[in-house]
Structure formats: C-alpha cells, structure tokens
C-alpha cells in the first residue's frame, strides 16, 4: 500500500548582508554585483561573504556584467535552457536561464545559436521583487542580427 502525500512548508531564508545588497541592486538599479576579495582580488559573482578562492571575508562589492561570455549551456526539455556565464569583470561563473536571441527586439528561443564563447547580456524583469529572477535570463548576442 502506497500513501500519497505532499509536503508544503513555507520557509524564510536570510540572504545575508552581501546577498541582500546583491538582490537590492538587481531590484532597484538593474545592476549585478560581485564580491571583490581585497586579499587576492578574485571577484565572485553572485557575491558571497567569503572569497571563493582564498576564503577570506569579503565586504567590497563591485559591479559586474551585464554582459558576459557563455561558457557552456544545457537544454533541459520541459525545464528550460541554462547557461554557465562568466560575467565581464567576474572570475567565477553564474548559472542562469538562457532566453534566446533578440532579432530584432523580440526574444526567439528557437533561433539560439549558442556556441560556447558566445557573448550574452542580462535581460532584467519589468517587475522586480529582489530575487535572482529579477534577471529574467540572458540573451545571446548575434554577430549578424
């Protein structure tokens, strides 16, 4: 006998000081912040309160992106296309949704030509709530629009 059940549990996550500044910058200014280590200069994006290279405490935030380089992407049918993006000015990649191409002015997810190394740019949501999804996703720039 199998009993069916559903787990529903509202939860509150503290984004932390650095995470909150990152999310507020997305919401208020449509800017992406990374954490710059004053010891080894590594810029970690999205920012965390410690350096991803040397584990020192990090408090200095710098603007990165919104353009970057697509290092790799994967298509999960039914779930979406996800990319590993190295934002300009950052040393660590961000994982986010890949929306497609703009040609011209409209998103065309079917016409994705996503060669690794392609240039991408962040597309911000119109209604932003202070979440990572305030970046709706990344658009692949085309050389020949």
């Amino acid at each position: 006998m199998i009993l069916e059940s559903t787990i529903r549990l509202p939860f509150s996550y503290a984004a932390g000081t650095v995470g909150s500044r990152f999310l507020i910058a997305l919401r208020e200014d449509q800017k992406i912040l990374g954490a710059r280590c004053t010891s080894c200069s590594t810029v970690t994006a999205p920012p965390r309160p410690f350096c991803s290279s040397c584990s020192r405490t990090v408090t200095e935030l710098v603007e990165v992106g919104p353009d970057g380089t697509l290092e790799a992407w994967t298509n999960q049918p039914g779930n979406g296309v996800f990319g590993l993006i190295l934002l300009d000015g950052a040393d660590t990649p961000i994982v986010h949704r890949i929306l497609g191409t703009i040609n011209p002015g409209t998103v065309n997810a079917e016409a994705i030509n996503m060669t690794p190394g392609a240039r991408v740019t962040a597309m911000f949501a119109k209604d932003r709530t202070g979440r990572i999804t305030d970046i709706e996703g990344f658009i692949v720039e085309q050389d020949d629009p």
Partner: peptide, 25 residues
C-alpha cells in the same frame, strides 16, 4: 542554494548537463 539557484529551477541533472557541455566544448 535557495537564494541564487533554487528560484531558477536548476537541479543536479542541470549541473550534469553543464558539466558534460563544458567537457564536449
């Protein structure tokens, strides 16, 4: 991670795909 990754809908299979894609580049 609940702040930067969960809202995107990624899972372990997404990461495996990204890893395989990196290796196949």
């Amino acid at each position: 991670d609940p702040i930067f990754l969960q809202p995107l809908g990624v899972n372990f299979l997404t990461f495996a795909g990204l890893q395989a894609a990196m290796l196949a580049r």
